[in-house]
């Protein structure tokens, strides 16, 4: 550049120089250029880990991991104090389910049975396709009576797809097993309305998007 530049142009040039950042290779100093110190450092790190660090492997089948309390595993259907299924067949979970894996068929509660005297409806069938479920926990949040919950069972396996569709009895047996083992205490707010049921639909709200599931 010639010396006849105006001071303004010089300032502009300076600013330009500052704002443009070139992605150059980092400067290589003398020690880096020798390579060997860096290699020795790498080997030292590797050896330090090999000999002096604690191995963090968990021997899985023998040594079960402890799941955090909010882990979302296999579902269960809770029972109330009288041993009845807590579910009142309100379809909230089925509606909330983004994976469309819950299917409930409601039936009127048997009126002649005094056990069911304070119930209006109960689920005649309650099936969850465990393979389709994405374990998001929205059914649990939607349930107004804390009937459906996700347990900390993480190693669900099966030999066929049919086997992985859990019906009401299976889901209740999951509750019996987990509550017997004391692994999963009932963790939602014990009968209080869940967050999903708190906001009621207003007349000013737009209607729900159509076509979300069979009952959406």
């Amino acid at each position: 550049m010639s010396t006849a530049e105006t001071p303004v142009a010089q300032v502009e040039k300076k600013q330009k120089k500052k704002t443009v950042q070139w992605g150059d290779d980092p400067k290589i100093g003398f020690v880096e250029a020798l390579y060997l110190p860096a290699i020795a450092g790498g080997i030292a790190t590797a050896l330090k880990h090999a000999f002096f660090k604690k191995r963090s492997t968990a021997q899985y089948p023998e040594q079960k991991p402890e799941m955090p309390p909010n882990y979302r595993g296999v579902h269960r259907l809770n029972r109330d104090e009288e041993g009845r299924v807590k579910c009142v067949a309100c379809y909230m979970c089925q509606t909330a389910c983004p994976a469309n894996c819950i299917e409930i068929i409601a039936a009127p509660a048997p009126q002649d049975d005094p056990k069911w005297a304070n119930r209006d409806k109960f689920p005649a069938t309650f099936t969850i396709d465990e393979l389709r479920c994405i374990y998001c926990g929205m059914c649990e949040e939607a349930c107004p009576v804390d009937a459906i919950e996700l347990t900390s069972i993480y190693d669900l396996t099966g030999m066929s797809r049919q086997e992985m569709i859990f019906d009401k009895e299976k889901l209740l047996s999951v509750f019996d097993e987990t509550s017997k083992a004391g692994l999963d205490p009932v963790r939602t707010n014990r009968g209080a309305l869940g967050p999903a049921s708190e906001k009621s639909m207003q007349s000013t709200d737009s209607p729900p998007p159509p076509g979300r599931g069979k009952h959406g």
Partner: peptide
């Protein structure tokens, strides 16, 4: 020889950055 090569390489790298 090795040390000289390292020094040469570092010097080359620095002078390259300077020129750039």
């Amino acid at each position: 020889l090795f040390v000289a090569a390292g020094y040469w390489s570092a010097w080359q790298s620095q002078s390259f950055v300077r020129k750039a």
